[in-house]
Structure formats: structure tokens, C-alpha cells
Design a protein around this nucleic acid. Structure first.
Lengths: 146, 146
DNA sequence: TTTTTAGTGGATATTTTTATCTACTTTGCA
DNA sequence: TGCAAAGTAGATAAAAATATCCACTAAAAA
């Protein structure tokens, strides 16, 4: 399971991409309100994403957050990596430090299959593709889409 | 990903079952040492498992922890449920409170498949089956098996 | 019956995660 | 030029998860 910070980050980015497509750059207050996340915590998370160059921001009047159109699409796994790291995809299913393919814990083989599927999903899914699903009505992001 | 408390609980129970098969009832100090978990925290977790009747304990000299042989095998999901609850298997992949099959978030369908596979694995895997893998040399639990 | 061993219960402490607050800087516009 | 809008930085707080401590009770052995 992802941390709340990562969940907020993914939802925020989908919202930003959607708004950018309308030629708008939402601010953190609007983003937080629309994705139902705490305002200042959302601001903090966006700050870290900006520092990592996952998104960009503009200060002052008319400013806000946006994804550079040049940049290649952002995968979910990149967001996870920059917010909470990738231990989710490397850690043993029952927390053994010495667990590996050659020295497996008793649930290793079965768990690794599921963990790898999740990693694959995260590596193949982009924020942009999630935004597409909202746009074409195949999914919702809370208030958006209604 | 499971919480540390749940990971310790699963490892502890596998250890207890293994020792019980040798007609022994390990104490929490021994258990904590062998599964590489903090001693007092392990004691606390075992207390909750005893209260939930997942395992039993005996006080005083010669006491320790054991699984009642009458009891039907304990599944991993039961342990998860009693230590951290089942929200892992119900929560939306990106934390939306309104997400469901009929009102899906943009990653719902793909994520639900993986989450359900994990739930299925946890529901079908028993502590006893994990102990079997240790016994027949197909897996290790840290020091045990070496 | 006393001593020792072993789990229990409750309080407390530490660490990590989540959340908030305030002062500051940058930018656009009147 | 100066005001208002918007992100930034750093400190702080609150909540949850993890970890520790100690006094108490139960049971077996000496």
C-alpha cells in the first residue's frame, strides 16, 4: 500500500495535467481542495516534486503548477520513487532482511509474483494515461468528471 | 506492504509452530531473538494474538507460546486482520474514498486485480504451510534451517 | 513455602508520518 | 512604484507506528 503522501502526489499530478490541458495552472489550494487532501501537506509534496523536476511551478500572479509539455510522460513508479522510495518493490513479504531468490523466505516465490506485477503496472502506467481515463469518462477523480 | 507488527507476528507464529512440533513452547525472548525482532514489541504482539485466541500461552516455569493442535490451521489473512486490519485489501490504490467498481478511480481495475491476488494468497496460505517449507528445506526463516 | 521462571498490563518513550503555521520571495498588474 | 497573488523555506505540531520499561500475577520446581 502506498503512503498517503504518494497517493496525494499521484492525485495532484493527475489534476494538474487535466487543468494544464485547459491551459490552466492550478495553485496548491485549488489542487488540495479538488483532490480532497490537506492544503499545506499538499503544498509540501508539490514542493518536493518541483525540486525533483517531476513538475514545474511559477510564482506570483497567474502562477501555479504545471507539467512541462517537452518532458516525457511521467510514470507512477517515478512518483512513488521520489516521494516514498521503492522499498515497496524490493522488501521481503514478511520483512526478512536476508530473503532473496536463492535464500527465500517461505512466502517469497508467491509474494514476488504479485509484487512484480504491481511494479510492472506502476512502471507502465503514466499520469497522462490516468488523466485520459478521466477525460473520456472511464474513471473519476472525486469531484472531477461529475 | 504489511506493517512491521504484522511481519513480526507472522514470523513469530511460524517459529512457534516449528518449535511446537519439537514438543517445545518458546518464550517471547527466544522468539524475538530468533526472528530478529525487538523483544518487548514482540511480547506485545504475542499478547494481542493470545487475546484473539490465535495462539495460546502458559505462564510460569515451562511456560511459553503454542498453537492449540485442535484449532484449524491459521491463515495469513487472519493474522493480518487481527494485527493491522484488512484495509490493505479494501483501500483504493490512490486513496480515493469514493472509489468502487461502479465509480472507479483511473487505476482501479488494474490495481484491484493485483490486490485481489494478494488477498487470495493471504487467504489460502497458512502458518502451518509456511512452517512445512522450512522443515523440508524449501525456505528459511533467518537462523532457522541453517 | 519460597524461589525462580514466564507471561500480562499499563505507562512511557522514540521515531516516522502526516499536517500546520508563519515569514519570505517572486511575479504580474494597476 | 507598490499592492496583491502565488510558491518556498523552515520551524513546529499532532498523530500513528514502533519500541521499551516496570510492577504484577501465575505456575512449577526446589
Amino acid at each position: 500500500m502506498l503512503t498517503k503522501a504518494t497517493e496525494y502526489a499521484i492525485r495532484a499530478m493527475v489534476y494538474i495535467v487535466l487543468k494544464n490541458r485547459e491551459q490552466k495552472r492550478p495553485g496548491y489550494r485549488e489542487i488540495a481542495r479538488e483532490i480532497e487532501a490537506p492544503e499545506h501537506f499538499t503544498a509540501k509534496i508539490l514542493q518536493t516534486l518541483v525540486k525533483q523536476s517531476i513538475i514545474q511551478s511559477a510564482k506570483g500572479r497567474g502562477g501555479g503548477f504545471f507539467c512541462s509539455p517537452d518532458r516525457k510522460p511521467v510514470t507512477i513508479i517515478e512518483v512513488i520513487q521520489h516521494v516514498e522510495g521503492l522499498k515497496l518493490f524490493t522488501r521481503c513479504g514478511i520483512g526478512l532482511s536476508h530473503c532473496s531468490d536463492t535464500n527465500p523466505c517461505p512466502i517469497h516465490n508467491e509474494y514476488a509474483i504479485i509484487r512484480n506485477k504491481y511494479q510492472e503496472l506502476a512502471a507502465l502506467t503514466t499520469i497522462q494515461s490516468l488523466a485520459d481515463k478521466i477525460t473520456n469518462g472511464h474513471a473519476v477523480l472525486n469531484r472531477i468528471g461529475s
